[in-house]
């Protein structure tokens, strides 16, 4: 993919995935890499950052004898997600306008 995601967008995307429900590390990675080219080494710091700023919490759950750490969005995280959502819409429209095409036809 030609575009790189900055820290803000990465945070927003992870929060977006968590908005649909709690998930664990590997599953989150799979979901993210399906759409974005992102490596594991980038994703872990994103999770740590969101955890330390109080946007998500973790809890451990034993699955078939092994421990699995789940990530869950907090109220603060939901607030930030809503902000990201409106900012993204504005940003997308601005970029669309700069790129031209669809909007210019109207």
């Amino acid at each position: 993919m030609a575009f790189q995601l900055g820290t803000e967008l990465l945070d927003a995307c992870v929060l977006g995935v968590l908005m649909r429900g709690d998930t664990y590390g590997y599953s989150l990675t799979q979901e993210m890499t399906r759409t974005v080219e992102i490596s594991e080494s980038t994703l872990y710091p994103v999770l740590q950052r969101l955890k330390k700023s109080g946007c998500l919490t973790t809890y451990d759950c034993p699955v078939s004898g092994r421990n699995r750490r789940y990530y869950s969005i907090t109220d603060l995280g939901r607030e930030r997600y809503v902000k990201f959502r409106t900012q993204w819409t504005e940003f997308k429209e601005a970029i669309d306008h700069l790129l031209g095409g669809i909007d210019d036809e109207k």
Partner: peptide, 22 residues
């Protein structure tokens, strides 16, 4: 460690890069 339970080592970045990010 949890990632490697399901994922394969080839999916990871090099140790140097991973450590630097952390």
């Amino acid at each position: 460690a949890e990632f490697l339970e399901e994922g394969s080592p080839e999916e990871l970045d090099s140790v140097e890069e991973t450590a630097r990010q952390i």
